[in-house]
Computed example of a mutant assay.
Amino acid sequence: MYKVAVMGDYDSIYGFSALGVDIFPLDDKVLAIKELRRLADNEYAIIYITESLAAEISEEIDRYRERVTPAIILIPGVLGNTGEGVSGVKKSVEQAIGSDIVFGNN
């Protein structure tokens, strides 16, 4: 059975445990890379990563872009939204449908 994980600073991710999601509080780049590899190799189908942590390990995340699993999804942390999560979704949709999409605040 596939599992769901969330990685990032503790304050940003601790609430996910109430939803039954496995949390992995990390703020060290080297440990985050090791943990991402371990999760990807151990039946985690979806891995949410805070945008700030993802910025530190972006090259490692890129290794998984073409794989079906795990799906790596960026989420904002307590320090705010950098826009990388929305940008990543937009890029994925553009690749899938071959067309640009527009996110608006209508």
Rank of each mutant, 00 (worst) to 15 (best):
M1T: 03
M1W: 03
Y2F: 03
K3D: 05
V4T: 15
V4W: 01
A5V: 05
A5P: 01
A5F: 02
A5H: 03
A5I: 02
V6Y: 03
V6N: 04
M7E: 03
M7H: 05
M7V: 01
Y10L: 12
D11Y: 11
S12K: 08
I13E: 07
I13Y: 06
G15A: 11
G15L: 08
F16V: 04
F16T: 03
F16E: 08
S17Q: 15
S17E: 15
A18N: 05
A18I: 10
G20I: 01
G20P: 04
V21A: 03
V21Y: 05
D22W: 03
D22I: 02
I23D: 12
I23M: 12
P25Q: 06
D27R: 10
D28W: 09
D28V: 00
K29A: 00
K29I: 08
V30I: 13
V30Q: 15
A32V: 03
A32I: 00
A32Y: 01
E35I: 00
L36Q: 05
L36M: 13
L39E: 01
L39F: 03
A40C: 08
N42T: 12
Y44W: 02
Y44T: 02
A45C: 06
I46W: 04
I46V: 14
I46Y: 12
I46A: 06
I46E: 06
I47A: 01
I47N: 03
T50A: 04
T50E: 10
T50N: 07
T50G: 07
E51W: 10
S52F: 09
L53V: 02
A55T: 10
A55E: 15
A55L: 12
E56P: 03
I57P: 08
S58W: 13
S58T: 09
S58R: 15
E60W: 08
I61A: 11
I61L: 15
R63P: 02
R63C: 12
Y64E: 11
E66H: 13
E66A: 11
R67H: 11
V68G: 05
V68N: 13
V68Q: 14
T69L: 07
T69R: 09
T69N: 08
A71K: 10
I72D: 07
I73G: 00
L74I: 02
L74D: 07
L74G: 04
I75G: 01
I75N: 09
I75A: 06
P76F: 11
G77F: 06
G77E: 06
V78H: 14
V78D: 11
L79C: 03
G80E: 06
G80D: 08
G80A: 05
T82R: 14
T82P: 14
G83T: 00
E84N: 13
E84W: 10
G85I: 00
G85N: 08
G85A: 05
V86S: 13
V89H: 05
K90R: 14
K91G: 01
K91A: 12
S92W: 04
E94M: 09
E94Q: 14
Q95S: 05
A96Y: 04
A96H: 01
I97W: 08
G98Y: 09
G98I: 01
G98L: 07
S99A: 15
S99M: 13
D100R: 14
D100F: 03
D100Q: 13
D100V: 06
D100T: 10
I101C: 11
I101W: 11
I101P: 09
V102R: 14
V102Y: 13
V102C: 07
F103I: 11
G104F: 11
G104N: 05
G104T: 10
N105A: 14
N105L: 15
N106Q: 12
N106A: 14
